Simulated scan of single mutants.
Amino acid sequence: MKLKLGFSPCPNDTFIFDALVNGKIDTGGLEFEAVLEDVETLNRWALEGRLDVTKLSFPAYFKTQEQYTLLNSGSALGKGVGPLLISHRQQPFTEAEINGAAVVLPGINTTAHLLFSFAYPDAHHKSFGVFHEIEDAVVNNGAALGVIIHENRFTYQDKGLVKVTDLGEYWEQAMKVPIPLGGIVIKKSLGNAVFGQVDGLIRKSLEHAFSRYPEVPAYVKEHAQAMSEEVMRKHIDLYVNNYSLDLGAEGRAAVDTLSAVYNRLHTGA
């Protein structure tokens, strides 16, 4: 059976899936056609049901639960891993100023957008762009504020930008659970047997990568060409952890907490 598998070119995803898609582990007869896209593209494709197995942001998962189910392995979830609200302005912002400012975010279906809305429910001057363009939008005064994710956590200060709010820290202090950023889902129509097989293979693929770490696979380097190996390792160290091997009860409870917040923000209840 051949499955279309979508994930991002970011180091955490390529690190997890390298062994699976590049023949480094036995896949038990399953074939995977890898499709690498930015997470908001993957979110949109999930809403359209394009891929058999895909990485997606948790708000996109909440919208697609009739079609997809969450795997135990492959997720990005943890502590101290949340998006950052940043600005080129050195002076502190008041909450009223943030609510009235132009903010650029990495996609309407992203967890970053949900966490920003959780922290600042009255901020409505929002626009959306590709995550790696947000720093430049703020540097060039296209927006007063930006929400950054992924490797931009490690580079924004190099561009003279400053942190306004750690949205992950805000979430952790308020909700007392880890931050669920993104998960790996599979089409329910494929059945329980394929669910179990794919889930086990993703875990095996990650265990293969961990067994050789801190070596950075060529596959990771290939898709992170503008990044130094130091930043690649920082990225992997931050976003790939025991929750990536298995969400477990604590991880799934955190996802349920995020789902309840998502529903409250979208229904006003």
Rank of each mutant, 00 (worst) to 15 (best):
K4V: 14
E135T: 10
P106W: 09
D199V: 07
A249L: 09
V198Y: 02
V139S: 13
I98E: 03
M175N: 05
A46E: 04
M175L: 11
E229I: 03
P214W: 02
F58I: 09
S127A: 12
I98M: 05
P180R: 09
Y68P: 04
L70W: 08
V194I: 15
S73N: 10
V261R: 11
D136C: 01
H208V: 07
K55C: 08
K176V: 04
R44N: 12
L71P: 09
Q67A: 09
L181W: 05
L85V: 12
P92Y: 13
M227V: 01
F7G: 10
I179C: 01
V81P: 03
A226N: 14
K24A: 12
G142S: 09
Y120N: 06
S117M: 12
F195K: 04
D38K: 03
E48G: 06
H266R: 15
R203V: 01
A60M: 02
L47Y: 02
A143S: 15
K221D: 08
R233L: 07
P83H: 04
Y213R: 05
L20M: 11
G100D: 13
G6A: 11
E230G: 06
F154L: 07
A143K: 05
H208N: 15
Y239A: 08
K126G: 02
D166F: 10
N72C: 00
T27C: 13
Q91N: 11
V255M: 08
D199Y: 06
G82Y: 11
S205N: 10
A34G: 00
S117A: 14
A249C: 00
I186A: 02
F93E: 12
L3G: 12
N99R: 11
I86L: 12
F93W: 15
N263A: 14
L5S: 10
T165D: 14
I179N: 03
N72V: 00
R44S: 13
Y213H: 06
K159W: 08
V162P: 01
P217I: 13
R252Q: 12
D256K: 15
V53T: 03
K188L: 01
N12L: 11
M175W: 00
